[in-house]
């Protein structure tokens, strides 16, 4: 299928650069996709990836596969990781009560940048589904 991308990597901070480069490549190869839609997906994907890096166990040896599809109506990204099942309630994520907190905004930001963010525990890991409808 045209417009499909796939990337494998180790869930460590240095791998984030590959995600940024992937989004850059999608933008170059799909100039018709609005820059804002790509920017929002990139923002959300980096937050989800950072969450896997921070909380995925065993730390430092979790692998991920990122698949990205460009469709007429949406950008869709699946991040599958090999971490232990994540205990996360995306619906309950909210901004920190202390407006000057230095942490705790990542998943809220990811959700706000997307139209749909889902997390499913699967055998051997987690799947994160990110959907940004094209404006």
């Amino acid at each position: 299928m045209a417009g499909d991308y796939s990337l494998d990597g180790l869930a460590v901070p240095a791998s984030l650069e590959e995600l940024h480069e992937l989004l850059e490549r999608v933008g170059t190869e799909h100039p018709q996709v609005a820059a804002e839609d790509l920017m929002m997906l990139e923002t959300a994907l980096v937050e989800v990836a950072a969450n896997v890096i921070d909380h995925g166990r065993p730390a430092g040896s979790v692998l991920w596969t990122v698949r990205l599809a460009v469709r007429d109506d949406r950008l869709e990204c699946l991040l599958s990781d090999t971490a232990q099942p994540a205990d996360v309630d995306l619906g309950a994520a909210s901004l920190p009560e202390d407006p000057e907190s230095e942490h705790g905004r990542g998943l809220v930001l990811a959700r706000a940048a997307l139209d749909r963010l889902e997390h499913v525990r699967v055998a051997g890991g987690n799947v994160w589904r990110l959907v940004r409808l094209r404006r």
Binding site: H20, T43, V46, E47, A50, E100, S101, H103, G106, L109
Partner: peptide, 16 residues
Amino acid sequence: DFVDSSGLGALVGGLK
């Protein structure tokens, strides 16, 4: 070009 929530955290930390 890009900031994520940890970058925001660093800015808030610097502000404090």
